Simulated scan of single mutants.
Amino acid sequence: MQPVVAIDGPAGAGKSTLAAHLARRFGFLNLETGAMYRALALKAIEQDLDFDEEAPLLELAHYTKIALEPQREGNRVLVDGIDVSRRIRDTDVTQAASKVSVHPHLRAWMVDQQRALGEKGGVVMEGRDIGTAVFPDAEVKIFLDAAPEVRGNRRYRQAEPVPQVTEEAILKELKERDYRDRNRAESPLRPAEDAVILDSTSMTLEQVLARAEDIVRAHFSVQDGTFQSTGAGTTKK
């Protein structure tokens, strides 16, 4: 069995960038579980479903085929065979995904799909409940965080050269997202008890990537391209 690296954290913390880097660095697959919620949210938008009604969304999920195809530059996301990789990054889909993801039965269904994707190991999975709900026995758990203002500024700069909204509006939406994620009934956003907390508020991207690599190496010794558990426990930092 290859190891599972679980990366959790709030919106805008840089989980996707970190997961993609670690996957490339250690030869793992990068499975972005948040893209699965966005993919379902996109289909709900197209079918004009109410995001507050769980039953229709759950029914929709059961006959929707969501596929993640890891690429070097990031995941290719398919919904019923159609590539929606770019569309699911749009603001309306991101906001819809936040509302869709609060429903407990829908989250349980998603967790089953995500476990199936990562059951063989050798993956980096990022989301909001990977280390607590999807893979509580993951060998490496990182909770990536940053101050809301820093995350909001990053989101704003990523929207350049022509941001469609103000930085203040992005920060407001991000804080609302944080509240929903941290207070939902099913799998609320929180660090796993054995996760390493990596706060990137005052760190450069290069520092974050280097620190995360050190966290992985602290749990596994690399020999001839394979991983062997060192048996080291995880501590919060």
Rank of each mutant, 00 (worst) to 15 (best):
Q2S: 04
Q2H: 02
P3G: 13
V4C: 10
V4D: 04
I7V: 15
I7D: 12
I7S: 07
P10Y: 04
A13W: 03
K15C: 04
S16Q: 01
A23P: 06
R24D: 11
R24V: 02
R25E: 14
F28K: 05
E32R: 09
T33S: 15
T33Q: 01
M36S: 12
R38C: 12
R38T: 09
L40T: 01
L40M: 00
L42V: 07
K43M: 02
K43N: 01
E46Q: 15
E46N: 13
Q47E: 14
D48V: 05
D48I: 00
D52S: 15
E54D: 03
P56T: 04
L57D: 08
A61Y: 08
Y63L: 02
K65I: 10
E69G: 01
P70S: 04
Q71Y: 00
G74H: 07
N75A: 11
N75V: 06
L78I: 11
L78F: 13
V79F: 09
V79Y: 09
G81Q: 02
I82S: 07
I82M: 10
V84D: 13
I88C: 09
D92Q: 12
D92S: 14
V93R: 01
S101W: 01
H105Q: 14
H105L: 11
W109G: 02
Q113A: 12
Q114C: 10
V124W: 05
M125W: 10
G127D: 02
R128Y: 04
D129W: 05
G131V: 08
T132P: 09
A133R: 10
V134F: 11
P136S: 11
E139F: 04
K141V: 09
K141F: 09
K141S: 05
F143A: 06
F143W: 11
A147D: 15
P148V: 02
P148C: 05
V150E: 13
R151G: 13
G152P: 07
N153K: 14
R155V: 07
Y156L: 10
R157W: 08
R157Y: 07
A159S: 15
P161K: 01
P161V: 03
P163Y: 04
P163F: 07
V165R: 13
V165M: 07
E167V: 12
E167A: 13
E167L: 02
L171Q: 11
E173W: 00
K175R: 15
K175I: 13
K175L: 14
E176Y: 00
R177A: 13
R180M: 13
R180T: 08
D181H: 06
R182I: 11
N183S: 15
E186Q: 14
S187A: 15
P191G: 05
P191F: 02
I197W: 00
L198M: 06
S200W: 01
S202P: 00
S202M: 07
T204L: 05
Q207L: 01
V208S: 06
A210H: 11
A210T: 11
A212L: 05
A212S: 12
H219C: 03
S221Q: 10
V222R: 08
Q223M: 03
Q223A: 11
D224V: 08
A232N: 14
T234K: 02
